[in-house]
């Protein structure tokens, strides 16, 4: 598949259609728009809410290992299942879910290329409002694998462009500080701008007009050649709250195969509010 380093983590909509209902295949939809799943989803898919089910409701953090085990158990998923994630907005939160599944050690998790919009617009693909009947499981997770995540104390020790590549995947207006967040977003920061030394490479440069990922050659040209991401260094991606950067994290780690890529999920809503921290505009 398009010469990706790890093609096994990506499936096409046709593959999903052919594998609907097969044992060992589980579908999970994760959307930005929480109304989308109820309006219609791929037959057999369960829906996860990124705000209430993938994030801890009391501390600002990803859900705990126990909560992850409960979530997947209630969704009828076992550690041996092949889990296909998909969602709206070009798989933003599906990619965030993918990152979370990997942190807690799920072996076989994949993204559906093009997300729910591609499925929606293909005439041979069905949608349903029917919620699947689930037989709960006792899911046991491993990890957490913290080599996939950057927390603030580690970030502050880095010297971008010397010790690491730092990739800001937000829109150009957020990068330059013209806006602090896209219009209408409630999660924001005290100031607009970016972390000093970050390269601004919007997440959307990784996808083509139909929302599917660009080929490995095109991605290599964008990240390594044009923007000088050094594949020999650690790479940290960030955005506003860590979901768009999960998308770029997926591209760099799995499609291009860089060996040390992390998601800084604290992102701009954390860094942009630190007292005394320098920023660039």
């Amino acid at each position: 598949m398009a010469n990706y380093a790890h093609p096994e983590v990506l499936v096409e909509t046709d593959w999903v259609k052919q594998h609907l209902g097969k044992p060992g295949i589980k579908l999970v939809e994760i959307d930005v728009d929480s109304k989308a799943y109820a309006a219609g989803h791929i037959p057999g898919a369960v829906g996860f809410n990124w705000q209430t089910q993938l994030q801890d409701q009391l501390r600002r953090d990803i859900i705990s290992k126990t909560a992850f085990e409960q979530l997947l158990g209630a969704a009828g998923i076992t550690p041996d299942d092949t889990v296909i994630l998909y969602g709206d907005n070009n798989n933003w939160f599906a990619a965030y879910g993918f990152w979370l599944f990997k942190i807690y050690g799920h072996k076989d998790v994949r993204l559906m290329n093009g997300g729910r919009i591609k499925w929606l617009n293909e005439t041979d693909k069905e949608l349903t409002t029917e919620v699947p009947q689930i037989t709960p499981t006792q899911y046991r997770a491993s990890g957490p694998d913290l080599s996939l995540r950057t927390l603030l104390p580690e970030l502050l020790k880095q010297q971008p462009n010397q010790t690491c590549n730092l990739v800001d995947v937000r829109s150009p207006d957020e990068f330059t500080g013209k806006v602090i967040a896209p219009p209408g977003m409630t999660e924001t920061a005290q100031r607009g701008g970016h972390i000093p030394g970050a390269k601004g490479i919007p997440w959307s440069t990784a996808v083509g007009a139909n929302g599917t990922f660009k080929s490995a050659d095109e991605l290599r040209a964008i990240y390594l050649d044009k923007n000088a991401v050094d594949p020999n260094k650690e790479t940290i991606a960030y955005c506003r709250i860590g979901e768009r950067s999960s998308h770029t994290w997926f591209v760099l780690k799995y499609l291009l195969g860089l060996n040390n890529v992390k998601n800084y999920d604290g992102s701009w809503t954390e860094y942009g509010s630190i007292v005394g921290a320098p920023i660039e505009k």
Binding site: A36, A39, N90, I117, R170, S171, S204, G208, G211, T212
Partner: peptide
């Protein structure tokens, strides 16, 4: 409203109606 301009996204209201 649309969250972040992007290729392939279309328009949220169109996609929800289609759904």
């Amino acid at each position: 409203d649309e969250l972040c301009p992007a290729p392939g996204l279309g328009d949220g209201s169109i996609n929800l109606a289609k759904t």
